[in-house]
Amino acid sequence: CHSECLGNCSQPDDPTKCVACRNFYLDGRCVETCPPPYYHFQDWRCVNFSFCQDLHHKCKNSRRQGCHQYVIHNNKCIPECPSGYTMNSSNLLCTPCLGPCPKVCHLLEGEKTIDSVTSAQELRGCTVINGSLIINIRGGNNLAAELEANLGLIEEISGYLKIRRSYALVSLSFFRKLRLIRGETLEIGNYSFYALDNQNLRQLWDWSKHNLTITQGKLFFHYNPKLCLSEIHKMEEVSGTKGRQERNDIALKTNGDQASCENELLKFSYIRTSFDKILLRWEPYWPPDFRDLLGFMLFYKEAPYQNVTEFDGQDACGSNSWTVVDIDPPLRSNDPKSQNHPGWLMRGLKPWTQYAIFVKTLVTFSDERRTYGAKSDIIYVQTDATNPSVPLDPISVSNSSSQIILKWKPPSDPNGNITHYLVFWERQAEDSELFELDYCLKGLKLPSRTWSPPFESEDSQKHNQSEYEDSAGECCSCPKTDSQILKELEESSFRKTFEDYLHNVVFVPRKT
């Protein structure tokens, strides 16, 4: 048989008469490798580009789960590009990614509803959504962080984005990388972005840091009482949809009607710091009717980097990364020049730590249904340095008659930039024990000054392991946590139920 035959053949030295091919099969003959313009397919066939392209389009058009959109890589027609490569849609070739590779997620039936953290986790790592997304989240724990972890990498949506009755959302900033909504599939009414009845939605994105392009379709905003109209108009300008909307697409009466839409800028007039305090004062603000001013709200939190936005980490279910302080308005003076500047002394802060701070007014709604208010920009203030805590785990070892090696770990709280350490030492008198000992005694162990690591005695271990207080009263049991108490109650309830079950099964009433 021919060298490319495997198993047997019907005619000697003829690659077209093989029972099976050793390498690849091409047009009725066995070959060692697939010549151009053919590609290896499933490690035994040679196919042309049209064959591989037909497989790709067949799966793409069917949208069946589990099928493969075949691509070409290293002269092979394979189910998908290997790690580190992405497909070129024009020629199906796998090309190296520039940075992290995109991950295209194809949605069944063309859309997916995100109504819980669990459903959001199914899209973790996706960068391109081939379909439409509907966000409908009523509640949950730590929602802002969970949504950002699972949806934060999405850069492109081919269909539309719909935010509907998501009472738990305060902001859409968890879509931190969303840059493009194509609108290839539109919501009824030709809408590519749809926001309806979101009672706590206050911000779409921080438009000073976020760009969003909507290729096709219109915007729809109705019944978002805490979303200011200025935020919607800003989205029109940034996304390129200005002029597409009709009169009733953006409701003037049901958007922002319960919001404090600040239209003035508060400026800080005085800032002073110490290692654990920050004193702030800002310019006074009074609405047209000074009785509408209820006070100020001061927001602050630790910020290692200057990239904080107002609604980071917030949701309507209680999660809030900001510390909020309510401040009463100052006494009002008739003389504008003698107006008191409101302020606040922030206490209990960490030394040498940068804080993000902003302040906003708290006002009631005027009778004319106009909203007044003022808010400052987010500023960054760093507390002063102070003395560091003591170095940890000092170790001293003498390696000769004239040297001592000293080692330690950095302090747990540096409280500033540590530039150097101060080492103090003092000579001590020799131990009298060394002169009084009889060095001729056998088995004498000389006193040693070398360091030995501390260890816990058996008594201390027994005390720590004991669940009861000892007789001397030195140790006591740790208080039980809520989960331990709940577990004990469940076990007790189970024992009672099981005992009742045994009584009912074992003891049967005697027939009379």
Rank of each mutant, 00 (worst) to 15 (best):
K103E: 08
K103Y: 06
C105Q: 00
C105T: 00
H106F: 06
H106Q: 11
L107R: 05
L107Q: 04
L107S: 11
L107V: 09
L108E: 13
E109G: 15
E109W: 14
G110P: 05
I114V: 10
I114N: 02
D115N: 07
D115W: 01
S116L: 04
S116G: 15
T118M: 05
S119Y: 11
A120H: 10
A120T: 11
Q121T: 10
Q121C: 09
E122R: 15
L123A: 03
L123S: 01
L123R: 01
R124Q: 04
G125K: 13
C126I: 02
T127M: 13
V128L: 11
I129C: 11
G131Y: 02
G131D: 01
G131T: 02
L133R: 01
L133W: 00
L133F: 04
I134L: 13
I134F: 10
I135A: 02
N136T: 03
I137G: 13
R138W: 01
R138T: 05
G139L: 07
G139K: 11
G140Y: 08
G140M: 05
G140F: 06
N141M: 15
N142V: 05
L143H: 03
A145S: 12
A145L: 13
E146P: 12
L147A: 04
E148Q: 13
L153H: 10
L153D: 03
I154P: 01
E155S: 13
E156M: 07
I157G: 00
Y160D: 01
L161K: 00
K162G: 15
K162R: 08
K162Y: 12
I163L: 04
R164L: 15
S166W: 01
Y167S: 03
Y167R: 10
Y167M: 15
V170M: 05
V170T: 10
L172T: 12
S173N: 12
F174P: 06
F174Q: 01
R176K: 11
R176D: 06
K177Y: 07
K177R: 09
K177N: 15
L178V: 04
R179Q: 06
R179D: 04
L180N: 03
L180I: 15
R182F: 04
L186F: 09
E187K: 13
I188M: 02
G189F: 09
Y191L: 04
A195K: 00
A195F: 11
L196W: 15
D197R: 15
Q199M: 14
N200K: 14
L201C: 03
L201N: 00
R202K: 14
L204I: 10
W205A: 02
D206Q: 07
W207H: 04
S208M: 06
K209I: 15
H210L: 15
H210V: 08
L212H: 01
T213G: 13
Q216I: 05
Q216K: 01
G217C: 08
G217V: 00
G217P: 01
L219P: 04
L219T: 03
F221L: 13
Y223C: 06
N224P: 00
P225R: 03
K226T: 06
L227C: 12
L227E: 00
C228T: 03
C228N: 02
L229Y: 13
L229I: 01
H233G: 02
M235V: 04
M235W: 03
M235L: 13
E236C: 11
E237L: 13
E237C: 14
E237D: 15
V238G: 13
S239F: 03
G240N: 05
T241G: 15
K242F: 09
R244C: 06
Q245F: 05
R247F: 12
R247Y: 06
R247A: 11
I250N: 14
T254N: 14
N255V: 03
G256E: 10
G256A: 05
D257A: 15
D257S: 02
D257H: 10
A259F: 06
A259R: 08
S260K: 04
S260D: 09
C261R: 02
C261F: 02
C261N: 02
E262N: 14
N263M: 04
K267H: 08
T273Q: 13
T273M: 10
S274G: 05
D276A: 11
K277W: 15
L279H: 15
R281P: 00
W282Q: 00
W282T: 02
P284M: 13
W286Y: 06
P287H: 09
P288N: 11
P288W: 10
D289S: 07
D289R: 08
D289P: 02
D292C: 06
D292K: 12
L293K: 07
L294D: 12
F296L: 02
L298C: 02
F299H: 06
F299Q: 05
Y300D: 00
K301C: 02
K301W: 04
E302A: 15
E302Y: 03
Y305Q: 03
Q306P: 15
Q306S: 13
V308H: 00
E310F: 03
F311I: 09
F311T: 13
D312P: 10
D312C: 10
D312Q: 04
G313F: 03
G313M: 13
Q314P: 02
A316P: 13
A316M: 04
A316N: 10
G318A: 03
S319Y: 13
N320L: 12
N320P: 04
N320W: 15
S321R: 13
W322H: 04
W322R: 01
V324W: 13
I327G: 01
P329Q: 15
L331V: 12
L331S: 11
N334G: 12
D335R: 11
D335H: 12
P336Q: 14
S338M: 12
S338F: 08
Q339E: 02
H341S: 12
P342Y: 07
G343V: 02
L345C: 06
L345M: 05
L345Y: 14
G348Y: 02
L349E: 00
L349M: 05
K350D: 03
P351W: 03
W352M: 14
W352I: 15
T353A: 13
T353K: 12
Q354K: 03
Y355E: 00
I357A: 10
F358L: 04
F358I: 06
F358V: 05
K360P: 00
L362T: 05
V363R: 12
V363P: 10
S366P: 02
D367P: 06
R370N: 15
T371R: 07
T371Y: 13
A374V: 04
K375V: 07
S376K: 02
S376F: 00
S376D: 00
D377H: 06
I378T: 11
I379S: 06
A385R: 14
A385K: 11
S389Q: 04
V390M: 08
P391I: 05
P394W: 13
S396P: 15
S398F: 09
N399I: 10
S400G: 09
S401H: 04
S401K: 09
S402R: 14
I404L: 01
I405M: 02
W408H: 00
K409L: 12
P410A: 15
